[in-house]
Design a protein around this nucleic acid. Structure first.
Lengths: 213, 213
DNA sequence: TAGATTGTTAATCGATTAACAATC
DNA sequence: TAGATTGTTAATCGATTAACAATC
């Protein structure tokens, strides 16, 4: 079903809730009210209750939310415990950094393939994984039930790479290339546009410096 | 002044406009209408005209926008040509990747310092820059007019690092650590929360897979 | 001039906040 | 029970879209 149609505004707040709930668990705190969670996250208590109620009534009047329970429920909603076979395409600086990002395994990414078209890196082993030629990408994706492709190539070719991933069964793209990828409606793309992020910082910084004078 | 108060929704679209304008220039296209730009970016023509008019009337009735002029104006607004002395704190995988990110220099970042508290990396040279002990951060920031700090440390200590940066004159933080940093109102923070991005992908992917069945 | 397209105002839509009855 | 806090509806706010007069 999933008829729900959760707005992206809500979706982007979920990981933050989850993060603070994990912190509360570390501190051994058992219960939390929407107001307290609001103070932590910076969202209003009202918004938090609205957000959570998109998925169900996890709280209890007069008490608040059970931290562990809410964390587990959110984890299920986000799909934390789902494991997806994944590949990285482009093992330059960024691709290598992500390959070695230990946290990957803990957030559902089972990284089993690295690809590059540069003959100098093809054949190398990085983070225990052999780098294959991008020519082999399609076959590999199909044969290994790859669900997520992590694109760390330059923008040139990133659409073609995406097409190969999608044609062979990938359903999610984590895109670090500075391009807007076209995918069918049953494939999801999450962009990390570092240059745009930096431009945003630049804009805000310039505004702030001007205002300050 | 900057009284303007541009909404973040608008701010986050600016880099995308800029990116497509650069692409149009590469293709030697001289003029573009809000409708054409809308087709490229996925925004509505109306929204684009509204956005741009926050900053001035760059277009001409019956003609559209001059690509080069609009790109230059947007560049000025974003502050593309401003150069800021910057440091990276934390030279693990991600910090090293960003250090070697060649694009940095082209988007206003003059990277002149690397810091880490791990004695094994202090003293090394990465991308031509010596890694210093984090103990030296405060002095370095003050003495070298550092305006931007790029935080690539784990979340532990990222607030303390931020405090040191801010106390010594930094005005912008590009934050890759999974923490929400507290800063004075004249300091801006741009977050790149990779885990949250991945959680978002996970949520969308799970929803999409469920819907598909 | 006629056609095109802006800049800008008004209308709509969606998201956030406020309020409060329900209830633990 | 009394106090606290949820779930949920209604009110508000802000952002997007539509419309169109101005004008190149």
């Amino acid at each position: 079903m999933g008829k729900s149609k959760i707005s992206m505004a809500v979706v982007r707040r979920l990981p933050k809730y989850y993060r603070y709930l994990c912190e509360l668990i570390e501190k051994d705190i058992k219960r939390v009210s929407s107001q307290e969670l609001g103070k932590l996250t910076g969202f209003t208590a009202s918004q938090i209750r609205q957000d959570l109620n998109n998925f169900g009534g996890f709280g209890q009047q007069g008490y608040g939310y059970n931290v562990t329970e809410l964390k587990n429920e959110l984890g299920k909603i986000i799909g934390i415990s789902e494991i997806y076979n994944s590949v990285i395409i482009g093992v330059g600086n960024l691709g290598q950094a992500i390959t070695n990002y230990r946290r990957l395994g803990r957030v559902g990414i089972n990284l089993i393939g690295l690809f590059d078209k540069n003959p100098k890196v093809v054949g190398l082993t990085i983070g225990g994984i052999k780098v294959r030629d991008t020519d082999e990408l399609g076959d590999f994706v199909r044969e290994n039930n790859i669900k997520i492709g992590i694109i760390c190539t330059p923008k040139e070719g990133s659409q073609e790479t995406t097409d190969i991933l999608v044609e062979n069964g990938a359903k999610g793209i984590w895109n670090f290339s500075p391009a807007d990828l076209k995918v069918p409606s049953d494939v999801v793309v999450e962009n990390v546009h570092l240059t745009e992020s930096l431009f945003t910082l630049s804009f805000l910084l310039n505004q702030s410096l001007e205002d300050g004078q």
